[in-house]
Amino acid sequence: MNRFYGTGVAMVTPFDGSGQVDYASLRKLIDHLIDGGIDYLVSLGTTGESATLNKEEKKKVWAFTAEVNNGRLPLVAGIASNNTHEVVEAIQHFETNGYDAILSASPYYNKPNQRGIYEHYKAIAEAAPLPVFLYNVPGRTGSNISSETTVKLAHDFKNIIGTKEASGNFDQFNHIMRDKPEDFLFISGDDPVTLPMIALGAVGVISVVGNALPRQFSDMIRLCLEGKFQEAQKAHFDLIEFTRLIFADGSPAGVKTALKQIGICEEKVRLPLVNVNDEVAAKIIAEVKRIVG
């Protein structure tokens, strides 16, 4: 599973001025990320605004991404829902060609208890034709996958191979790292705290920042994984303001502003998301110019 070490990028979905998927820009983004040295791609995670794409659009984006990637990097598909039956059905009908794993965010809004979360992922694990990553992001879902539930799922289902952790709870991280199976992958889902998470034992990150700054961010992650934390710390500090800004007025609107500045795609997002405000946009653009020229 070391193909999922390092920097994965939760890719944005580019839209044109009329709000349709912009496939030419998606091709540019994929090549930009690969040329930037990232380690694997995540298609239609939450950063890809998957909640606003219909089934046919998702199918086309997944197929196009696999075609353009053409086996150059490992590829992960984001497939999630707060309806367990729906996500199981989507996984059963997913065209796996070109894909290496599935990333599934925990159910949002319903606020299931830990038994419900366990049963949700049990159903996914039993249906999935590919390895599965859990995704814990309480700030968006409204519920937390506890360390006990994460570890139980990791021990009970061999095809649940890791977790993307974005709870920000280091006590929880400690318990997962202590009790998980040795080969279960602990991955940061939160760009600003990836460095200390790797110090604790995380094997990398699934990043938003990496969309715009793949070389800078993946180089920092490699230094961390090599144990060169003093060098990595310099790069980490250099990216702090950019990282703060791209989340300051909504994600992925912030990173799409940066991507427009470097000529990858338009900043268009789909409602209910809107573009970042003018003040934040100006600061993002200034940071991009400072970092990449």
Rank of each mutant, 00 (worst) to 15 (best):
G6A: 06
G8P: 09
M11S: 05
V12D: 00
T13S: 14
D16C: 12
S18P: 03
Q20T: 05
V21G: 02
L26V: 01
R27D: 12
L29Q: 13
I30V: 11
D31N: 14
G37F: 10
G37Q: 06
I38G: 00
T47G: 06
L53T: 01
N54Q: 08
K60D: 10
V61C: 08
F64C: 09
T65S: 15
A66I: 10
E67L: 10
E67C: 08
N70L: 02
P74Y: 05
L75M: 15
A80K: 06
T84Y: 02
V88D: 04
V88M: 08
Q92L: 15
T96E: 11
Y99D: 01
A101R: 04
A101C: 10
A105T: 13
Y109I: 14
Y109P: 13
Y109T: 09
Q114E: 15
I117N: 06
I117W: 09
H120Y: 14
Y121W: 15
E126Q: 15
E126F: 09
A127W: 10
V132D: 00
F133S: 03
F133K: 04
L134K: 01
Y135H: 02
V137H: 03
P138V: 03
G139C: 11
S143K: 03
I145A: 03
I145G: 02
T149W: 10
V151S: 07
V151I: 13
K152W: 09
I160D: 01
F170V: 07
M177V: 13
M177Q: 13
L185N: 02
L185I: 11
S188R: 03
G189C: 13
D191T: 00
D191F: 04
L195N: 02
M197Y: 05
G201D: 07
A202Q: 02
G204D: 00
G204N: 01
V208I: 06
L213S: 01
L213I: 07
L225C: 06
E226D: 15
Q233H: 11
Q233I: 02
E241L: 13
R244E: 08
D249A: 15
G254F: 06
G254P: 10
G254K: 01
K256A: 07
K260E: 15
Q261P: 05
Q261E: 15
V269Y: 01
R270W: 08
L271Y: 09
P272L: 06
L273Y: 07
L273H: 04
V274T: 08
N277R: 10
V280I: 15
I284A: 02
A286K: 12
V288L: 12
